[in-house]
Amino acid sequence: MSDAIVSCKKDQVLAAVEKARGELEAPDIIENGLAAGMNEVGTLFERGKLFLPHVMMAAEAMQAGVDELKGDMPESSDKAASVIVNGTVEGDVHDIGKTIVSTMLQTAGFEVHDIGRDAPVADFIAKIKETDANMVGVSALMTTTLPGQKEVIEALEEEGLRDKVKVMVGGAPATNSWAKKIGADCYAENATEAVSKAKELLL
């Protein structure tokens, strides 16, 4: 199953899901097969062995596999464990890193709502309210747009949402110290770290 995901081919993934169905429970197939394969894809991407189109093809294949298994899932596992809103702050059009983070979080089992780049603070807040999110990922790739991360945290405080929404920051100029300084819950260096930090904070 893992190998099928790493091959980035939807038909191979669906065939592997079909084969595994009779032998394993659906949650087991997703966690130890599909998600494990996606972790391997993330590692290969960071090592420069697989590229963004492969990551997206693997994610699409994984999604198809998960959709195929939906009917077999127990009732209680119908809803994703945690909901994350992810976006790049207003004034900053950088998108690639944030998109990779969204994809990896999604394939790790989180319900992710990517609000895109150049997103005003109000859009972060509106989406958090709309989706009842537990976490917000705030990306900034320029030293000049970095303060936008602080503005999102301030807006969460003003709206009385800060206690229930964890804040993760990332992007080239963001650092651990910056995260501490602005009162974020964590800083992630890359997509893999974003997934592990989200798991630490939410699961």
Partner: peptide, 19 residues
């Protein structure tokens, strides 16, 4: 590391992504 947004672009027969 050259980020592979495309993944298959080449220069003189060399794939550029992941270098």
């Amino acid at each position: 590391c050259t980020l592979g947004m495309h993944g298959e672009l080449e220069f003189e027969g060399n794939v550029l992504a992941g270098l």
